[in-house]
Design a protein around this nucleic acid. Structure first.
Length: 115
DNA sequence: AAATTGACGGTTA
DNA sequence: GTAACCGCCAATT
């Protein structure tokens, strides 16, 4: 059980970054997952924001399907309108309020029954 | 050192 | 269903 404060050592930060990139690389085409799930899978349940930071700044993210990462309510990244286009090209549908239909497209890595 | 910021999550109203 | 808060943590100002 991890207690706050919960600072990350540089080694842990490196491992975290690698895990995040590795998980994102596994998101299937036409599906999405969330920052929170990725952070939890990497072993840091309270660091969803660091997932976003990693994807925003890590050069490796350029070649990964980071457009398949959205918030838990299906919101796409602010200031990145192209993300919606990329997802729609894969068949991911959006609700009228501009959010991904999470009930149909959320993918939970290696835990879901529908893999 | 203190306050602010952000590709977030959860609870409450 | 939406909106407003609050909590969270590393980086930045």
């Amino acid at each position: 059980m991890r207690d706050y404060p919960d600072r990350m050592t540089p080694e842990q930060a490196r491992a975290f970054r690698d895990d995040v990139l590795n998980i994102v690389a596994q998101i299937p085409r036409g599906r999405v997952t969330t920052y929170g799930f990725i952070a939890a899978l990497a072993g840091w349940p309270s660091h969803p924001r660091m997932v976003g930071r990693t994807l925003r700044y890590a050069p490796e993210a350029e070649q990964l399907p980071c457009h398949r990462v959205v918030t838990i309510v299906g919101r796409t990244a602010p200031g990145w309108g192209r993300q919606r286009t990329l997802l729609e090209e894969e068949g991911v549908e959006f609700k009228p309020n501009g959010r991904v239909d999470m009930d149909r497209y959320l993918w939970t890595p290696r835990l879901a029954t529908d893999e």
